[in-house]
Amino acid sequence: MYESLPTITATRTDATVRTANRRGSAWLLAMLLIPAIFFSAANAEYGDVVINEVSEEAGMRPVVFPHWFHRIRFRCKVCHADLGFKFEAGGNDITMLKIIDGEYCGACHNGNIAWSVENCNLCHSGKPGTKTQVHESTLQKLVSPVKR
């Protein structure tokens, strides 16, 4: 039944979870044994998300989203329930068009609640070449380069 759901929601259904449980231990062990040779010298803040799904292809720097800055001002619920941000870096298909239309970041970054989209480089501030990922996450630190 779950298998018939669209992929995007299926990422966190129980079907996947159960699969992960079954194979989790083996995976974990295997992954921890992979030499962690891909560590960057980054000292990012815990939870900083780099989003580079379309930015660099379009000639802009990747976006850095600082979770810490936003959670001082808003509870998780505002973005993750009301605005519909999925709990997954790169899982949201965010484009400037949607932002200008008031979706995603544009719900606040409209010159009303927060500064507006003409301040391109305040968001597009990532080091060129940085991939979409959650910095300092367990996956990034322990399991290594799955998302790179």
Partner: peptide, 10 residues
């Protein structure tokens, strides 16, 4: 912090 482009003024 290594993930921001330090050369960007902003």
């Amino acid at each position: 912090d290594g993930i921001h482009d330090a050369s960007s003024v902003e």
